[in-house]
Amino acid sequence: MTATAGLALDGLTVGYPHRRVVHDASFAVPRGSVTAIVGPNGCGKSTLLRAVARLHQPDFGTVRADGHGLWQLTRRQAARHVALFPQAPRAPEAVTVAGLVRYGRHPHQGLLRQWSREDERAVHEALEATGTRALAAERLDRLSGGQRQRCWLAMVLAQQTPVVLLDEPTSALDLGHVIDVLSLVRTVAAAGRTVVMVLHDLASAARYADTVIAMKDGRVIAQGAPPRDIVDGPLVKELYAVQADILTAPGDAAPIVVPRAPGA
Rank of each mutant, 00 (worst) to 15 (best):
R31T: 12
G32S: 05
G32H: 04
S33C: 06
V34A: 06
I37N: 01
V38A: 12
G39C: 06
G39Q: 03
G39E: 07
G39H: 05
P40E: 07
N41D: 13
N41T: 08
G42A: 10
C43R: 10
G44W: 10
G44E: 09
K45E: 11
S46C: 08
T47D: 09
L48S: 07
R54E: 01
L55M: 13
L55K: 00
L55G: 03
H56P: 03
Q57T: 14
P58E: 06
P58V: 08
D59Y: 10
D59M: 14
G61W: 09
G61R: 08
T62G: 13
V63L: 08
A65H: 08
A65K: 05
L70D: 04
L70T: 15
L70G: 06
W71Y: 12
W71D: 09
L73W: 09
L73A: 11
T74H: 03
R76D: 12
R76Y: 00
A78L: 09
A78V: 01
R80W: 05
H81C: 09
L84S: 02
L84N: 08
F85I: 10
Q87T: 10
Q87S: 09
Q87C: 09
A88T: 13
P89K: 01
R90V: 14
A91G: 02
A91V: 12
P92E: 07
P92A: 13
E93N: 07
A94Y: 01
A94D: 13
L100V: 06
R102T: 08
H106P: 00
H108Q: 11
L111G: 12
R113T: 13
Q114Y: 04
S116T: 12
S116I: 00
E120W: 00
E120I: 00
R121S: 13
A122R: 05
V123Q: 04
V123M: 09
V123T: 05
V123P: 07
V123W: 08
H124C: 00
E125G: 00
A126T: 05
L127W: 08
E128I: 10
E128K: 02
A129K: 01
T130W: 05
G131Y: 10
R133A: 14
A134H: 14
E138Y: 04
E138A: 14
R139Q: 14
D141S: 12
R142D: 12
S144K: 07
S144N: 08
G145W: 04
G146W: 04
W152I: 05
W152P: 02
W152E: 07
L153C: 06
L153G: 07
A154H: 03
